[in-house]
Simulated scan of single mutants.
Amino acid sequence: MIGIVGIALIFIMVFGGYIAAGGKLGIIMKSLPFEFMMIGGAAAGAFAISNDMAGIKHTLKDIGKVFKGPKWSPADYRDLLCLLFELIRLARSNPVGLEEHIEAPENSAIFTKYPKILTDREAVNLMCDTLRSASMNYDDPHQVEEVLEKRMETNLHHAMHSTHALQAVADGLPALGIVAAVLGVIKTMASIDQPPEILGKMIGGALVGTFLGVFLAYGLVGPFAAKVKTVIEEDSHFYQLIREVLVANLHNHATNICIEVGRQNTPGHYRPSFSELEEALKEVKSEAA
């Protein structure tokens, strides 16, 4: 919602200020389709050249993050801590019984309690792979932490591709606007014998290209890239929480301590209170009893 409000504010302030200052939209509206065809088309072509099909799909999909915001809510972080609590407790009390849950999480009675988390393939694989490694005596906490850190760095780098692609387009738009403006000047120079009022309109139309390139770069595409980056970084905290809890588990801390480590490492605006989490864990224990 805030993204839509921001876009509306940009258009209202820019064009409203222009009109309030005595500007006329006629010349802009007349030139806009042709200028947008040149600038937008060139930007789209450059975007296609610099990305493969997977990158293009990834970027177009991530544009939705501007309006949807982060994927995970405070309730999801609480549910994740409850899920990790159940898995760690089972791993310590019945390691053999844990295997059926981490080998087929989609059929697990534990994972299916948390359908939103179950739909995130990376989060589920991160938990299952780490717990599976621990069951194979691959239990050096520092080594596991390093492996998890590298894995998450790789995932974050891949997720950030869309922000780099959008920022590259934003960086190129002002120059493409100049290209469109130069073409407009060339057109104007070919009509140099026309009266000043006609030449003035033609020069104004050429300058629309410069305006459009800068406006799209700094008013829309650049902010889109920044917002997508912010959302991706926010969502990455969810996976970092998984790492913190599972590494604490490998240090053989008590289960409740492992979960508290995760809670303390959750960003403040997502972190459940101690009493809220305690109540949720009591419900988990009562269901398992």
Rank of each mutant, 00 (worst) to 15 (best):
residue 270 Y to W: 15
residue 259 I to L: 14
residue 265 N to C: 05
residue 258 C to S: 02
residue 276 E to A: 13
residue 269 H to Q: 05
residue 259 I to Q: 02
residue 244 E to Y: 01
residue 281 L to D: 08
residue 252 N to E: 14
residue 259 I to S: 12
residue 247 V to F: 01
residue 259 I to G: 01
residue 280 A to K: 12
residue 275 S to H: 06
residue 262 G to H: 03
residue 263 R to E: 05
residue 278 E to P: 02
residue 276 E to Y: 00
residue 258 C to H: 00
residue 269 H to G: 00
residue 259 I to T: 08
residue 277 L to A: 05
residue 250 L to E: 11
residue 271 R to S: 10
residue 257 I to W: 15
residue 278 E to S: 14
residue 256 N to E: 14
residue 250 L to N: 03
residue 250 L to I: 07
residue 248 A to D: 09
residue 245 V to Y: 00
residue 266 T to S: 12
residue 270 Y to M: 12
residue 249 N to C: 09
residue 275 S to C: 00
residue 257 I to Q: 15
residue 248 A to R: 02
residue 247 V to M: 12
residue 267 P to I: 05
residue 270 Y to I: 07
residue 253 H to G: 03
residue 261 V to E: 02
residue 257 I to N: 14
residue 256 N to R: 12
residue 258 C to T: 00
residue 271 R to Q: 15
residue 281 L to H: 08
residue 249 N to P: 00
residue 263 R to T: 12
residue 264 Q to K: 15
residue 270 Y to C: 11
residue 255 T to K: 05
residue 268 G to E: 13
residue 250 L to K: 04
residue 256 N to P: 00
residue 267 P to T: 06
residue 246 L to F: 07
residue 272 P to R: 08
residue 281 L to E: 11
residue 269 H to P: 00
residue 263 R to H: 10
residue 257 I to M: 15
residue 245 V to K: 01
residue 280 A to N: 10
residue 256 N to A: 11
residue 270 Y to N: 07
residue 253 H to K: 09
residue 251 H to K: 13
residue 264 Q to N: 13
residue 281 L to I: 13
residue 264 Q to E: 13
residue 257 I to E: 15
residue 269 H to F: 14
residue 259 I to C: 03
residue 245 V to H: 04
residue 278 E to Q: 14
residue 270 Y to P: 08
residue 248 A to T: 09
residue 274 F to D: 02
residue 258 C to F: 01
residue 275 S to D: 15
residue 255 T to S: 12
residue 252 N to F: 14
residue 263 R to L: 12
residue 249 N to R: 06
residue 272 P to K: 09
residue 274 F to I: 08
residue 252 N to I: 02
residue 273 S to A: 06
residue 248 A to Q: 03
residue 244 E to Q: 10
residue 274 F to T: 10
residue 254 A to F: 11
residue 254 A to R: 14
residue 278 E to G: 09
residue 264 Q to P: 11
residue 276 E to Q: 11
residue 268 G to M: 11
residue 272 P to N: 10
residue 259 I to K: 04
residue 268 G to V: 13
residue 262 G to A: 10
residue 257 I to F: 15
residue 246 L to P: 01
residue 244 E to D: 07
residue 279 E to N: 09
residue 278 E to A: 06
residue 269 H to E: 05
residue 247 V to G: 03
residue 270 Y to G: 02
residue 280 A to C: 12
residue 247 V to E: 12
residue 265 N to T: 08
residue 278 E to L: 10
residue 275 S to A: 08
residue 262 G to L: 08
residue 274 F to C: 04
residue 268 G to K: 12
residue 244 E to F: 07
residue 273 S to W: 03
residue 253 H to R: 07
residue 246 L to Y: 00
residue 257 I to V: 15
residue 260 E to W: 01
residue 281 L to V: 05
residue 251 H to L: 15
residue 250 L to S: 03
residue 248 A to N: 08
residue 245 V to M: 10
residue 263 R to G: 02
residue 263 R to W: 06
residue 278 E to C: 04
residue 262 G to Q: 09
residue 268 G to C: 07
residue 270 Y to R: 07
